[in-house]
């Protein structure tokens, strides 16, 4: 791997800012600008937090339902099964993130190995 490969070209970096940094950062700055007058315990904030949680849940679902990159090589049933198995163990272990993640991963790897 050469040094210039690690740096890449300036065009790709410009695309990063136009397609990635600006569309992402704009929501943070809007929050800074318009969030000022809102009280911590207000009803509006309860709604806004619920919507934020649900949008994040949508991103989680999207990655599993319409998988990117190498994850697309894993059959649907294994991806859903991995999340389901992880969730069951997460709940059984009094909400251990670690146990849930490890179970989900093992389920997928074992399934891949079993299917060949």
């Amino acid at each position: 791997m050469s040094f210039s490969q690690l740096i890449g070209d300036w065009h790709a970096l410009a695309v990063l800012f136009v397609a990635g940094v600006v569309p992402n950062q704009i929501w943070r700055m809007l929050g800074l600008w318009f969030g000022g007058g809102i009280d911590e315990g207000s009803e509006l904030l309860v709604w806004v937090r619920a919507v934020a949680t649900a949008i994040l849940a949508g991103v989680i679902a999207q990655i599993v339902v319409e998988p990117p990159g190498a994850l697309a090589s894993v059959p649907d049933i294994l991806r859903y099964g991995a999340v389901g198995a992880g969730l069951v163990v997460f709940l059984l272990t009094r909400r251990s993130i670690f146990a849930g993640v490890v179970t989900g991963e093992l389920f997928m790897l074992a399934g891949k190995w079993w299917l060949g």
Binding site: A19, W27, R28, G31, E40, L45, V51, A52, L56, V59
Partner: peptide
């Protein structure tokens, strides 16, 4: 890409709104 990113980033708005008062 910009549209997909900005949609995924909308959740940052309520996060900022709820975290800054702290």
């Amino acid at each position: 890409s910009a549209i997909a990113v900005t949609v995924s980033a909308i959740r940052l708005f309520p996060m900022v709104v709820s975290v800054l008062p702290l």
